[in-house]
Write a protein that binds this DNA or RNA. Structure first.
Lengths: 206, 206
DNA sequence: GTTATCGGATAGTGCAACTGTCTATACCCG
DNA sequence: CGGGTATAGACAGTTGCACTATCCGATAAC
């Protein structure tokens, strides 16, 4: 298919597709002359992946580039996982995190096998530091529930990856699932908050 | 305290604080002349809230403004909740969501009391639509786990809000918890993923 | 053969979040 | 009490990102 069709069937402007080509997000089409190239269904699909990562996952172009590279290259699953995790996690300056918060996170995660440079470990500590800075009272009734839920979700994530049969599909689920899973959970949390709130404070007539 | 001290004790540049004042994110100091004003501890605290919302919660200035206004005004808790939820949820164009995905979300949430315009409902459907567009296989083994976890987290959220005694503290937890809770869960998910992954594929010698 | 479209290069746009400069004051230390 | 520093407020400038527009020479479609 040609550029015009690729554009119309993806809903993305020609200029934008050319931009993605320049940035290396989208592989070049099959060349047939100095100003001719053909694109296949894999380009269309790739464009959908890109839009999903950008619009739903909220990634930047650079971040999307990194995770797409991770899908394309055949590193091991563990390595792919790490790239996906690091890409979706914002870089955290160590001095924005109090050592006490890190300790609290480590206690919370005691029993878990988590390496010291897991991006989530510092990110969680950063959140707790922010609560501390705001003088929030004891959150020990709140945070453990999050950890338990995160564990359940991680089990579901790994189950889903296990359920894929070929390596390529596993890799893709690792990356897409890591990125879109955050969005999915956040969305369901909103719904659940309304449900629980109604349940508790204005229960439907029994 | 004066501007210089407010800046140094918050770690935020004077020019940036002035910018927040202009934008109405930070209330003006107590005036003592045409070029003098004094700031109190509440300004310092407010700056910490702002940085938390921006850096940890990833909100824009405009979004931070909305939720801060929600904290300041004394709307009911339910209304505050709604503002917080809508602010952290990106606006979704309805035609980026397939009706089938909405139906699937509604089935997933059957038994929950969720209004049709809950921001999470559409956002969840958007994520499912993206998976559909990528031709992902059946996700019925994956998504329900997310819903269950989201319910558990929402219970923890409401428990924590209930545990606060005064209205002001409840309101603040509604807003800050909604915004930072997403970040906290995402971080703990990263840690849990590593834990479960290690547990399954390279268990420590027993 | 003429009109439309193509790939590629380059420049420009719009927005968000600051950052820097300027001016007329006011404070503060010696 | 005087000179250096700080201040509020106005406004322009900067940076980075994600596009978007324009142009060119070549090719395709009718």
């Amino acid at each position: 298919m040609k550029m015009a069709l690729l554009s119309s069937s993806s809903g993305i402007a020609v200029a934008t597709i050319k931009y993605y080509l320049r940035e290396g997000l989208l592989p070049a089409g099959e060349r047939h002359g100095p100003n001719q190239a053909l694109y296949g269904p894999e380009h269309l699909r790739r464009l959908r992946v890109i839009r999903g990562l950008l619009d739903v996952g909220g990634l930047s172009i650079a971040a999307a580039h990194r995770v797409i590279d991770a899908i394309d290259s055949d590193l091991g699953l563990a390595h792919t996982f790490e790239i996906a995790q690091r890409t979706v996690s914002a870089e955290i300056e160590p001095d924005s995190v109090s050592p006490a918060s890190v300790t609290r996170v480590d206690e919370l995660l005691s029993g878990w096998h988590v390496s010291p440079d897991n991006p989530g470990r510092l990110a969680a500590a950063r959140v707790l530091t922010t609560f501390d800075d705001l003088g929030q009272p004891d959150l020990s009734g709140w945070v453990p529930g999050y950890a338990a839920a995160a564990l359940a979700v991680a089990e579901a994530d790994l189950d889903e990856i296990d359920a894929r049969d070929d390596r390529e599909s596993k890799t893709e689920m690792v990356v897409i699932g890591t990125v879109l899973g955050d969005a999915l959970f956040a969305a369901l949390r909103r719904a659940a908050q309304e449900h629980v709130s109604v349940q508790r404070y204005s229960p439907p007539s029994p």
